[in-house]
Amino acid sequence: MKNSKALCIAVASGKGGTGKTTVATSLALSLTPQENVLFLDCDVEAPNGHLFLRPRIEAEKKAVILIPRIDVEKCLTCGKCVEVCQFHALAEIGKSIMIFPQLCHGCGSCAWHCPSKAIKEIKNPIGVLEAGLALKGIRFAHGILTISEPMATPIIRQLKKWQKTETGSVIIQDAPPGASCSVVETLRGADFALLVSEPTPFGLHDLKQVLDILKEMNIPGGVIINRDGIGDFQVDQFLKQNHIPIMMRIPYSTEIASAVAAGKTLLDVSSNYGLEFKTLFSQIKKRVMENETC
């Protein structure tokens, strides 16, 4: 809401397989058609949102990083590019400069600092972005990291900048699991983080990691407990002690497990979830507004 005039909700979890995508897709479907929803699947290593929202892909774009190419005519092999590169993506070997594209972060420092202007930057594809209309008119986009490419964050960054966001629309960003840089990239700029956890020791441990990120990034958040009833009560206790709101509980049931396995959302299991997610959304809106005024 701050700058983009759209409300951006990121869905994260820490631990994998707690139901991020189930929650994110169910939320998106509950909000349409009343809200204009843009769904961004930011789990570019293992994107699954499309399996539930079934977009018809209409637009495609390469996700690239800019890597150096050296004009040997102009290159003085002075070694400046090797000196400035923090990632050792360049090496001075004899009378030439070798480039290691997979280590390059695309920062452009080598090209900028080359005294003889011998470095041109070329596009090195590391994945693709795809977009199209999905179920119930949801605008959908995801990024797909090419197999054997290591860096996910540049794709997430490009995905977030790709689609135009309209005033008053709602952006739902499905984050990757874990708590490293790609989760940070997904959360950056979000107005609210919805954290999906499960009541197990693993769920709690990894939830704490993401809560630390939220604190550092100053993003308000709330928790959904999925598979409520399995495991223990430690997540509940922890959240209570730390005054973190539990915004929804989804019970464990074999019915839900098999529906999700078959590519269905919670709305397919019970229409009650439509209302629950709408209520959740108004709570989120309220929290975001409170956060902005204080």
């Binding site: 090797v82 923090q86 990632f87 050792h88 993506a89 090496a91 001075e92 070997i93 004899g94 290691f100 280590l103």
Partner: peptide
């Protein structure tokens, strides 16, 4: 000197050898 740096330690070490 590159032992504790980010990725690319192999290349940095090769550069030392060169």
């Amino acid at each position: 000197s590159s032992v504790n740096q980010r990725g690319g330690a192999g290349i940095a070490a090769a550069q030392i050898a060169v």
